[in-house]
Simulated scan of single mutants.
Amino acid sequence: MFVAVTMLLVAILCGLAVVRELRRKNLFAVGFAAISMAVFGWFSIATIVTYISSGGTQGIPM
């Protein structure tokens, strides 16, 4: 669960970077930050959903 929360924090920071770089009109950095936000956000949400749906056993069969 620690990894999921860490990835979610990274995704939030990437979202802030997207906004900051849009203000600076640096589209190359906006692209990288947006892709990073999408990837880290997807994996963090998928990890959290898997953790919740498996009952907190982290994929270990019961």
Rank of each mutant, 00 (worst) to 15 (best):
Leu9Lys: 03
Arg24Cys: 09
Ile52Pro: 02
Asn26Pro: 04
Val30Asn: 04
Ala17Phe: 14
Gly31Phe: 08
Ser44Ala: 11
Gly55Lys: 03
Phe2Gly: 15
Val5His: 10
Ser44Lys: 00
Asn26Thr: 12
Ala33Gln: 00
Ala34Thr: 15
Phe32Glu: 13
Gly56Ala: 05
Trp42Thr: 10
Phe28His: 06
Met37Cys: 14
Met37Asp: 04
Arg24Leu: 12
Gly31Trp: 02
Ile45Asn: 05
Glu21Leu: 10
Ile12Asn: 02
Phe32Asp: 08
Thr57Arg: 14
Gly31Ile: 06
Met1Ile: 05
Ala29Tyr: 06
Gly59Trp: 04
Pro61Glu: 01
Gly41Ala: 00
Ser44Ile: 06
Phe40Gln: 01
Ala11Ile: 00
Leu9Gln: 05
Asn26Cys: 04
Val49Asn: 06
Ala17Leu: 13
Thr57Lys: 06
Leu8Pro: 00
Phe28Asp: 09
Ile35Pro: 04
Gln58Trp: 09
Ser36Val: 05
Arg20Ile: 07
Tyr51Lys: 07
Val3Leu: 13
Glu21Tyr: 14
Met7Gln: 11
Phe28Glu: 11
Val10Cys: 06
Gly31His: 03
Trp42Arg: 08
Gly31Thr: 01
Gly31Met: 04
Trp42Met: 11
Ile35His: 11
Ala29Phe: 14
Val10Ile: 15
Gly56Phe: 10
Ala38Cys: 07
Ile48Arg: 00
Ile12Trp: 08
Leu8Cys: 11
Ile45Cys: 09
Ile52Cys: 10
Phe28Arg: 14
Ala29Arg: 13
Lys25Tyr: 07
Ser54Tyr: 04
Ser36Gln: 07
Met37Arg: 06
Lys25Pro: 01
Gly41Val: 05
Phe2Leu: 14
Ala29Asp: 07
Leu13Asp: 15
Arg20Pro: 04
Ala34Ile: 06
Leu22Tyr: 02
Pro61Gln: 00
Thr50Phe: 13
Asn26Trp: 03
Ser54Gly: 10
Arg20Gly: 06
Met37Pro: 02
Ser54Leu: 05
Glu21Pro: 05
Ser53Val: 12
Met7Phe: 15
Ile48Gln: 06
Leu16Arg: 09
Ile35Glu: 07
Thr47Glu: 12
Met1Trp: 08
Ala46Lys: 05
Phe2Trp: 11
Tyr51Gly: 10
Phe28Tyr: 10
Leu16Asp: 14
Thr47Asp: 11
Pro61Arg: 03
Phe2Ala: 14
Val5Tyr: 15
Cys14Pro: 02
Ala17Pro: 01
Gly31Asp: 01
Met37Ser: 01
Pro61Val: 00
Ser44Glu: 01
Ile35Val: 11
Ala17Lys: 09
Thr50Lys: 08
Ala38Met: 13
Gly15Tyr: 02
Val18Tyr: 02
Thr47Val: 08
Ser36Tyr: 12
Ala46Asp: 14
Val39Ala: 14
Thr6Pro: 03
Ala11Gly: 09
Ser36Cys: 11
Ile52Gly: 11
Val39Gln: 05
Ile60His: 10
Ser53Trp: 09
Leu22Trp: 00
Pro61Leu: 00
